[in-house]
Every structure is written in structure tokens, then in C-alpha cells.
Amino acid sequence: MIPGDFQFSKPPKNKLILLGVLGSIGFIVFAVIALIATFHISSWIDKPIVFAGEAPDQPIEFPHTIHVQELGLDCTFCHTNVTKGASASIPAVNLCMSCHTQLGDGSTEIEKLREIHAKKDVIQWTRVHRMPDHVRFIHEAHVKRFSGTRLVVEKITDSTNQIRLTEAKTIKAGAKIGETLDIAASGTCSICHGDVSKMHKVEQVRTLKMSDCVDCHRENDAPTDCTTCHY
């Protein structure tokens, strides 16, 4: 109220509006980027996967396509422990050799396997699905829960990590919405692992972040008490 303190002239109105609009847009963009970045970095830090579709190279190329699709082997043929205990278990070299002593001559990958077997060595696979130490995931309980359940196909989308779609795909190609399906024991694996039979290199299809687990648990009336998985 003291004259003489301020000597500022009034700016043109359209300039003011432009500044205001630019300012607000800039702020919103900044806020959104900051939020997304925070969320992503924080959720990435100790989680198994950041971006879906990451299929690591393995020391020996193991095509699930051939073994599952063409030969029709069941998952439990190699991952024997999956119906018995917490871990699905990686098959021993001996198990591979029960077939490959005879089969597969001439393939470089199988020669690698035979070499390892001859040296009585172990194969160091690159882990694809990893749960952090503070998570107890029991394969057996999940397989038991899902095998033999019936469900109605509700929606079919393109995303591979939609639980109902993967189930439907496994059970019956081209299932229709509204159709009722039974899940076979071996079909349960693909609920989380995707259709491994079609994978040349195994990749992780679900995020396997905690939200993923919790959503599924809620959907299926499974316990969501923390001690179910964390102890």
C-alpha cells in the first residue's frame, strides 16, 4: 500500500494464460514421471523381473518345445519334486542321459551335455524364476490346489499374464467365453509359468511380484496372511 515500492507493469493477458497453461502441463508431466520412476525403481530393486519378455541364454540350449510339444513329456517327468515338495527341482544330468545316451547324436548341444556327463560335472543353469529369500513358495500346495479345479472362461485377452487366459489356453486351444473347463495336473504349471511348451528359451511371463501373488490368492480365496509366504 505504499506507493513507490512497486514499479511493475501489467503483462498482456494472453501471455499470462500461455504461461499458466505451460506451467501446469510441465508440473503434471514432472509429477507423473517422478511417480512412475519412483514406483518402478522401488519395485524393481529386489524383484525378479523388471521387463517382461526377458529370456536368458542357457549354457545348454534346452528346447522345451521339442521335449514337451513334440515328445509330449509331462512337466513332472523331469521336475519330479513339483508334486511332492516346495521346490520343483531341476533334473539331474543323469536323468537327461537316460535318453541322450542313445538319442540326439550330432547335435552340438547334446554333445555339450555328454561332455558334462563324462566329466561328472554339474550344469549351471541361469535361473529364470527366482523368489527372494524371504518368500516361501510351495509348489506342491499350488499344484494340488489347481489340479482338477473347474473354471469358467470369462475373458480372453492377448496379454500372457492373464491367469484365466493361460489356463484356458493350456487346457484347450480356442476355448470360448463361458465354457467350463477342468485343469489337469500338468496344466497347472502354465498358470504361472506360461505355456512353456511353446518356449524355445524359457522366459518369465508373469511379474511374480507380490501384487501378482496376492491378487491370485484373493481371487482364489487362498490365505493372504503374511505368514503364508513370509517367515
Binding site: I45, D46, T80, G85, A92, V93, N94, Q124
Partner: peptide, 25 residues
């Protein structure tokens, strides 16, 4: 503090699998 320990990025196929070597049992 939060990184994945390198040894956890590997998983091993043993040469043989005796009864008491199955992981998780």
C-alpha cells in the same frame, strides 16, 4: 543392500540326484 546375490542367479543340475539331495525335501 537390495541387489540379488550373484549365486542366486544360478541354479544347478547335479550330476546325480540321490534321495536326500532333492531341494526342498
Amino acid at each position: 543392500a537390495c541387489g540379488v546375490p550373484p549365486e542366486e542367479l544360478l541354479v544347478e543340475s547335479s550330476y546325480e540326484m540321490p534321495e536326500d539331495m532333492v531341494s526342498g525335501l
